[in-house]
Write a protein that binds this DNA or RNA. Sequence first.
DNA 1: CTGGGGATGGGGCCC
DNA 2: AGGGCCCCATCCCCA
Length: 537
Amino acid sequence: MANCNDMVFHTQIASIMEVLANTAVAEICKLVDDDYAVFRMEITQSQKENRSLRRKLQLLELKVARERRHSSAKILERYRGMARGDYLMKLVERMPRVCKAFKAKGEGHLTGGHRGFVKPVGHNTWRDDQPITVDEGSGTSTQHVIVIESADAAGPGVKLEGSEGEEDPRHRRDIQTGVEDPTTAAAQPRTRRSITEVSGTLTAVLKSKTDTKTLTVTHSLLHTGHDHISDPGLGRLVCPPASSSDYLPVFHQSQRPVHSLGDGDTLDTGGDDPTCSYTTEDPEDLNMPLGLETQADLSIGDWNQYSSSVYSEGYLDKEGEGLVIDEVTVKLEGDVPPTWNADHLREGHSQGRDFLDYRESLETNPNVATHSPLHTLREHNPVSTSMGSSDSHGHILFDQVLNSNRDKTQAWGGGATSGNSKEKRFLCMFCNKGFSCPQKVETHQRVHTGEKPFSCTQCHMRFTEAGTLKRHQRVHTGEKPYSCPQCEKRFSRQDKLKRHLKVHTGERPFACTHCGKRFSERSYLRIHQEKNHSTLT
DNA sequence: CTGGGGATGGGGCCC
DNA sequence: AGGGCCCCATCCCCA
């Protein structure tokens, strides 16, 4: 009897289990079906989007091809319209000097060793009075210096290259990294469009740190004929016209590292590139892959600071021949967040500390508007979470930043909300300063965030602006395109030449209000007043 | 030897 | 992108 009961019990249990199992299976199937339906819908949608994007891509390609043809036609027209002599002269000017040097020497190739090219900065075309140095091979080798100068450039203001030999010893660095052989240039008769070939010890154009691989990359990129030192934040956008009276705080975008390619100026060459060995039309060039080992070489400029980032860059080529989309895949090692890392602080990026301090001040200073979008930023920006404990520099910069921002705001007449606010309606979310377009705001906001997306591949320096990086690279190239018409001095920057000219003119526009002493620079006056009249001011 | 001034290099930042 | 100005640091000269 007991056995019979057990059997019945087991039978009931089994049936219940079966029912439960069936129910569970049914529910699972239902879930799977639902998910599958959703998944199918998503796939269908994605396929639709994919097709749509493909169509857009095709349209873009067609447009690009059309614009290229149009641009080429315009170039042809331009040269066709020239007198033959002018055209030939232009060709000669645009012809890479290096090729001419090699041809003159009977070496028609440019494949041996790494080569460094130095072009005068500040000009997209080669200046006539600039010698071009070719650094070939890894040791001593023949150095080709071509001095091509125009007769009209040989006025009293043009100085011989030999002047640097007499330069102040403290400028040795410039000589060491200089691109010119002073004695050579000075010794050469400066005849119109002469080509001079000089044998001598190799002049290091690029630092030894820059290895061959890096140079190879540089040249590969050069083949594109495009400037890869583009502002990652600005992208290729153009400042939109102000269309409304809204004031738009511009939020900090994710930081994307952009590295210089050694001699950034060579990137400007476009059709003037001295290698004269590439074309800008080769699609392969345009899609030059950036291999991992290559990036390891580029890590000289802190490539490895960033864990991984994949981004696409679109840019306009220099000749304006159309829109080119260049996809660069960057895959790097490490776990550092892509938007910020401790190096910003470690490497003396005081502005990163500024940002921290400023942020902290915002939290504690009742005078600072608490509705600042900064608070929103703090919720999302890795800066606020990764930097908090690393600030060991105290609060020295608090007031600097705050005063700076305050001053700027006041100087602006209360920010962009007054005056020409229609033109400058894009507000900095930190200091409320107004700018005419979002890109400018983003660049400006790096003052507050300490973001420095532009890094030099030849040193550890990082910069907030592409132009500053480009300017900085003359430190490495030794390039000094600006020469004083009164003396032998040369300068890498125009503003330095301008400042130097006061030495000759005796111009001293800054007078001390206390003693009347005059100075050529405002900073001299300030230092003077601090030292001598600090009690009066 | 020291401090002030001049000259210069270089980065930051804005236009 | 380039120009321009500011600031700071450094070196040199000279009283």
